Simulated assay, not measured.
Amino acid sequence: MVSLLYVCVRPELGAADAEHASFRRALGVDVVDRLDLLTERLDPARLARYRGVVVGGSPFNVTDPAKSVEQRRVEADLESIARSAAAGEIAAFFTCFSIGVVTRMLGGEVTSATPESASATVIETTAAAADDPIFGPSAPSLTVFTAHKESAAALPDGAVLLATNAACPVQAYRVGTHLYTAQFHPEPTPRDFADRMTFYRTTGYFDPEEFDIVQRQVLAASVTEGAALLRRFAETFAPATQL
């Protein structure tokens, strides 16, 4: 039985397909089902069949001044998943753009004041993360990939800060025991992330004239702890899917 679901919110099919493969490898499972919220509506009955959900990244921003009907629908469906996870009905790991959706749902502010360009970044775990089954073993710090234009302005009410750094103070937090959020991308290898950059070469995550330089830096980085977080997420909440 498949117990994990990858929720796709990327309009770029090639990038979405590669991200799905990255999550499957990082989670350490044979099969991770896929739900593409840009082409399918969230079905609560289908969601209930899974023990865990991972939400991928997106070029969408919560702070976008003008949103398509499609983006508004995606954000509403992500909020539904987040509410289920906050209630402990399902485990969910939100990444990238979707941490902003969760932050807004919790009444927090999302800001464009603390962006991070496409790069490997060191983040520090907090004292509160020491006993967390997902983040605790990665203490005191880990290197992950970042690329975002917005982030949580502050930790929202009811959340537990798990990871931070000077550039972006809210890198990861947990709500209750089943809802995890991360501003960074935990799933890609350096090769995965370098390949993903080609889809977003002119979208503002790095200077397009420095593409080759940034890509070489990404490929030279040693980044493994993000995948370790996801492996522990699968082992904790969906052990039946282990290889």
Rank of each mutant, 00 (worst) to 15 (best):
M1S: 14
L5P: 01
L5W: 00
Y6M: 08
V7Y: 01
V7K: 01
V9Y: 00
E12F: 04
L13G: 12
L13M: 14
G14D: 06
G14Q: 08
G14P: 05
G14W: 02
A15I: 12
A16M: 07
H20K: 06
H20T: 09
A21F: 09
F23L: 04
A26C: 05
L27W: 05
G28Q: 03
G28N: 03
V29R: 00
V29A: 02
V31E: 13
V32A: 03
D33F: 04
L35Y: 00
D36C: 11
D36I: 14
D43R: 13
P44T: 10
A45H: 12
A48C: 11
Y50F: 03
R51F: 07
S58F: 04
P59H: 08
A66F: 14
K67Q: 06
S68P: 05
R72G: 08
R73S: 12
V74H: 01
V74Y: 00
E75N: 07
E75M: 08
A76W: 02
D77E: 06
I81E: 05
A82D: 10
A82P: 04
S84Y: 13
S84G: 13
G88S: 10
F93G: 06
F93H: 05
T95H: 01
T95N: 04
C96Y: 08
S98A: 09
I99H: 02
V101G: 00
V102K: 00
V102G: 01
G107T: 11
G107P: 13
G107N: 10
G108F: 01
T114I: 15
P115M: 13
S117E: 15
S119V: 15
T121S: 12
V122S: 08
E124W: 14
T126F: 03
A128C: 08
A129H: 08
D131M: 13
D131S: 14
P133A: 11
I134D: 00
I134N: 02
L142P: 07
L142E: 01
T143W: 07
V144T: 02
K149A: 15
K149Q: 14
E150M: 07
E150R: 01
A152P: 05
A152R: 04
P156M: 09
L161K: 03
L162E: 03
L162F: 06
A163H: 05
C168R: 08
C168H: 05
P169D: 11
V170R: 00
Q171V: 12
Q171D: 00
V175G: 02
G176F: 01
H178N: 12
H178P: 06
L179P: 00
Y180N: 07
Y180M: 07
A182S: 05
A194V: 06
R196S: 09
M197G: 02
T198A: 12
T198Q: 12
Y200D: 11
R201I: 14
R201A: 15
T202P: 07
T203G: 12
Y205G: 04
D207F: 02
P208K: 04
E210R: 07
E210D: 14
E210Q: 11
V218I: 09
V218H: 01
A220W: 05
A221D: 03
S222H: 13
S222Y: 11
V223R: 02
E225I: 15
E225Q: 15
G226I: 12
L230H: 03
R231G: 12
R231C: 13
F233Y: 06
F233I: 13
A240E: 15
Q242A: 14
L243T: 15
L243R: 10
